[in-house]
Design a protein around this nucleic acid. Sequence first.
DNA 1: GGACTCTCTTGATCTGCATCATGGCAGCGA
DNA 2: TCGCTGCCATGATGCAGATCAAGAGAGTCC
Lengths: 252, 252
Amino acid sequence: MSAHLQNASDTAPFRSCNHEFKVSCETCRLSRICLPLALNSTDLEQLENIIQRGRPLQRNELLYHEGDTFQSIYAVRSGALKAYRTTPDGREQVTGFYLPGEILGMDGISENSHASSARALETAAVCAIPFDSLEKLSAIMPGLQRHLFQLMSREITEDQLLITLLSKNTADERVATLLLSISRRNARRHLSASQFRLPMSRVDIGNYLGLTVETISRVFSRLQKSGVLRVDNKEIEILDQEALQAAANIAG
Amino acid sequence: MSAHLQNASDTAPFRSCNHEFKVSCETCRLSRICLPLALNSTDLEQLENIIQRGRPLQRNELLYHEGDTFQSIYAVRSGALKAYRTTPDGREQVTGFYLPGEILGMDGISENSHASSARALETAAVCAIPFDSLEKLSAIMPGLQRHLFQLMSREITEDQLLITLLSKNTADERVATLLLSISRRNARRHLSASQFRLPMSRVDIGNYLGLTVETISRVFSRLQKSGVLRVDNKEIEILDQEALQAAANIAG
DNA sequence: GGACTCTCTTGATCTGCATCATGGCAGCGA
DNA sequence: TCGCTGCCATGATGCAGATCAAGAGAGTCC
């Protein structure tokens, strides 16, 4: 296994050695929350056939870059990624964090080139799903078509929630909301909702929430002091779920 | 015509009298930028058959409300609408403005109920496109399926631009960016890019941009004083396009 | 093991926008 | 014509979070 990794690490992902990383959706424990969600086993087999699994991405490695020709959407199998776009004056805006079972890259469809970049926050395994194949499949599999529409629609509603968060909420509320979101997404994968390790840095959190690093730090300190959280660098424990919900001030 | 209007104004839109407001996509001057965009005339005819055209909405009338069962997406034929969602503490967040030729309502797909509300900013005519029919059509019309994916993808990238705007830009930059956006969308409809009437109030603009009314007012005054704009209530004239671009500080 | 770098924390000060307050103006119904 | 209401403008003041500054850990390379 580590031999494969070593071997593959100097080749581009998804270019070669697909079979070396062969993992089937059928045995993947994320299949219940990922793309296969709505498919029966015959359909699933067809989906399997188009999915590409490359070597894992290293921390900080790019999955795709803004302007790259759009070819695939991606499902996170392990690890975590951030999506971000670069402003004309060279700054970054983080637009989302993607955890196992989640799909990214759909913003590339409209212009046939990626509107954002995606970078691994830690070692991450990703499935690439070529979009033209997926389109053809979804024309003959109504369940898949619907699921794709739903996925994109969910991305829209989540972006709208972030817009609201940025526009209307205080620093404390923003941070609390992000923590609750991660907690909930962990729970969906049957991980602990109250204790977890943040895959992203304070800088990334601040960037995502429209705040500075210093502010993120201060909010964490405040929430720790008031007994809502235990914070040890990236290790988070939610001590008082109710209080965190209250701090978030939204239907988290 | 005005008789129809009067007659229909006490019935719900899209419930009855579809034929009374029959306008075909084929003769609609928006067809080049609207849904029919990618269709040949045979396919267009099939699309025509599912589209419903109701009576015009009055200013402030709701098109749909958050929580309503999702049935259709909507194309603006004339006038303008705003989409907004209500926060748990009862405030509004405007998430978008929709001008003729633009499509709204796609955020309802994922949960099968509308995630936001839509309200007419002025008298507005709207085409309703029942989504289950549209889904079926798009399974047999590859061009339509692709166009729908692209539309949703564009909504995502636009939301991401707004996220960036809210998170990284000053009041002046936000307002300038909105004005440039409206200008560009007018140009797409072969209207003046430099002179137009804003369909929305200062309150709506502030809400959308995460600012207060007072700030919007001050920014307009400032831009007028510096010779970039001429502002007369909702009438806007862009006197110095370059300067406005510079003020926006983005690839507007 | 020491030097370096990267990330995080905490404190002091500054500032852009919110908030509060007031007044003007246009539209509209009686 | 008058009063009412909704929308907009502008001034005075306050505050949340940015900015500036400094230092503490933790991981990594040689």
